[in-house]
Design a protein around this nucleic acid. Structure first.
Lengths: 128, 128
DNA sequence: TTTATATTCAACCATTAGGTTGAATAATAC
DNA sequence: GTATTATTCAACCTAATGGTTGAATATAAA
């Protein structure tokens, strides 16, 4: 059932990209990339309520980019870089197709040039 | 004025990540990664109105991921992979910090082990 | 010149997202 | 125990998003 797997991956990518699309959330990730922290610590620098940051964290957690483990009443947050692999993968794949296509076009141009050299015998109009 | 540059980059990242967060838009990009196409061609496979796809394209264009040049009444779309470099860059940077921190922790653990070997002299309780 | 095609613009609608405040829950500290 | 701290839950508000339909614009074809 490749279809289902593809749909699941699509949904995961949706969630990860959306999670990363908000500047506050990227700042949270950057903060966590320097080490684990509690919710309150993470929230401290932001000019918004703790609740707002708490919501952002939930979004990050749902996307799998951030993980949480409780230590007493503290919730300790860390990032899971492996979730970023999926993003990397999608971009690499897309780029590969596109650049492959450019290469193909370049090859085609080379072919046309060769034709040019062999003589523009019965060509009335140049290639457009 | 580093601040301003940073803010601009932030805004660009917002736009790019948000553009990539929608499955229809990613599908459009995948389509274009196989070669340029007109708006109608791009829209054809999607189960939504042409107008809806047109809007998606505008979002992609605003983010810089897709470019457009007009050829008569046709608008020809292509992707600009260099805009994806910014995403790559952000992820690589984040990952680097995080992994650097893990390495540091590993180093610390090694240190502790060395201490262990040299004898647990006046240590009453083990490290937690 | 009329007609058809490619595309956008404009107005609208329903849902989601990011924020607020106030109350609830759960663990620590006194 | 009672108070304090860390965090979430719930309800609410506003703005943005993703979609619709119908009209406008611009180019191409008859």
């Amino acid at each position: 059932m490749i279809e289902k797997a593809a749909t699941a991956r699509t949904a995961r990518l949706d969630a990860i990209f959306a999670a990363l699309a908000d500047p506050t959330r990227r700042a949270i990730i950057e903060r966590l990339s320097r080490g684990e922290a509690r919710v309150t610590e993470v929230a401290e620098p932001f000019p918004m309520s703790l609740n707002a940051v708490s919501k952002h964290i939930r979004v990050l957690e749902a996307s799998g980019v951030v993980e949480r483990h409780r230590k007493g009443r503290d919730h300790i947050l860390s990032i899971n870089t492996s979730s970023l692999d999926e993003v990397d993968g999608w971009i690499a794949r897309t780029r590969r197709y596109w650049e492959g296509r450019l290469d193909a076009m370049e090859g085609l141009l080379r072919e046309l040039k060769k034709d040019d050299k062999r003589g523009p015998k019965d060509r009335k109009h140049g290639p457009r």
